[in-house]
Design a binder for these strands. Structure first.
Lengths: 235, 235
DNA sequence: CATTCGATGGCACTCAGTACCCCAGACTAT
DNA sequence: ATAGTCTGGGGTACTGAGTGCCATCGAATG
């Protein structure tokens, strides 16, 4: 009875009705009354399931956002935060890739309805804020931790969106996972601690409990901290 | 000249009326009729000057966006694109910093009205798109130019917003230009080694002195950072 | 003086979103 | 069983944003 196939809940009926009417008449030309009528419910019930007309276009983003924050919170403390947020981005992508038909349909809609584009922005922003919040905590012991967190979160989201949009433009034909992996790899390369030129040398090879760091004055603080951290790490 | 005093006073009156009423009654409790009535014009005229109620909160963003795109287009081809977009971000910041009272007032408003936050997001997005479009062109000869452009544009915007928000939170008391310079410097440094164009900033930091730090393993990070910071400080 | 044009006000309309009340069915206490 | 009440949906009326249409007024122009 719980998973009866002959009883689609009202919520699903509303989503189905909306995505039947939107491609036919267009988003603006479809009223909430039309959707409710086609779904066989009263207009009032629509707003019981969706706080606004726009929300029916993103029916399960609330759950997805909750999933992502839970995923971030469940991360072990010794995991590289950069890896963790990249994995979180992959999690979101999977939500799109698991239902390509629906995702492409929605993409076409949002592409040509300014109001939906704006709404989608606010949705994406919440993901970005969740990432930034997580990173602020993980970067708490670094200078400029909020700035670092905001910029990295924005970078990850931008890379994710770049790959996702490319995949959506191809009608969901290509390999979404590979595309997002490539994009995230780009971000990871510019952020991962690679021993570059001019960085302070860290004599961490000695097995005793002392680390000696030699840094030149006016070395960027992030380089110093980065190398200290890797030198202090127990691995 | 085109910038003569013959500007429509109605528009300014509407903005003044809106920003008088919003703090009094709140944004949602202020109707467009109220604003128009206080400005001494008909309700219909409000929508002649502003396409929506939200637009009156960002009266000159359209001009600002045009300024920024023009600034990007006017850049010489031999200039480092990273520097150019950073300079463009500074341009936008100046628009806020030039009128601190208005900017702080608007910040307080957008902070507590979800609809305005969403609208501001769409505004910021247009700046980011303009930056990304410019960078796509400048990165045309590199692999992943679109990805590189999107991520860098997002980073610059995130850094700019981080600095701007900090300044706005302090009621416009601190040095906004210095804050955004610091934030943009962070972005520039994480991108300079990767862009590898021999940016002018890289050679300028010719270290002349050396500092040695000795730390024990598992020392709290904040302690290490504090000592390093004071040792590296140029005083 | 008549005309055209641009800017404005007024009116009426659609539609999203909300407040309030009603109704039907299910479950429970007596 | 009868009454109480809890829940989920329906219906009505209202507010307010945004739009289309037309009348008006004033200035520039013939």
């Amino acid at each position: 009875m719980t998973t009866g196939p002959a009883k689609p809940p009202i919520r699903d009926a509303l989503v189905a009705a909306a995505f039947q009417l939107f491609p036919e008449r267009g988003y603006d030309q479809t009223t909430v009354d039309d959707i409710a009528a086609l779904a066989g419910v009263g207009r009032r019930s629509f707003f019981r399931y969706f706080p606004s007309k726009e929300d029916v276009v993103f029916p399960d983003h609330e759950r997805s956002l909750a999933d992502m924050t839970a995923f971030l919170a469940a991360g072990p403390d010794d995991e590289d935060p950069v890896e963790r947020v990249c994995e979180a981005a992959r999690l979101v992508l999977r939500l799109y890739a698991d239902d390509p038909v629906f995702s492409v349909q929605r993409y076409r809609l949002t592409k040509q309805v300014p109001g939906l584009r704006t709404y989608e922005l606010s949705v994406v922003r919440r993901y970005e804020s969740a990432l930034a919040h997580y990173l602020r905590g993980r970067f708490a012991d670094r200078p400029d931790n909020a700035l670092r967190a905001d910029v990295l979160a924005a970078s990850v989201v931008a890379a994710h969106n770049n790959a996702l949009r490319g995949w959506l433009r191809s009608d969901g034909e290509g390999d979404a996972a590979a595309a997002v992996d490539h994009a995230l790899d780009f971000v990871r390369r510019t952020w991962s601690p690679d021993t570059g030129d001019g960085s302070p040398g860290a004599a961490a090879t000695e097995p005793d409990d002392v680390v000696v760091v030699i840094a030149k004055r006016r070395t960027p603080m992030w380089r110093v901290v980065r190398d200290i951290e890797s030198a202090l790490a127990d691995d």
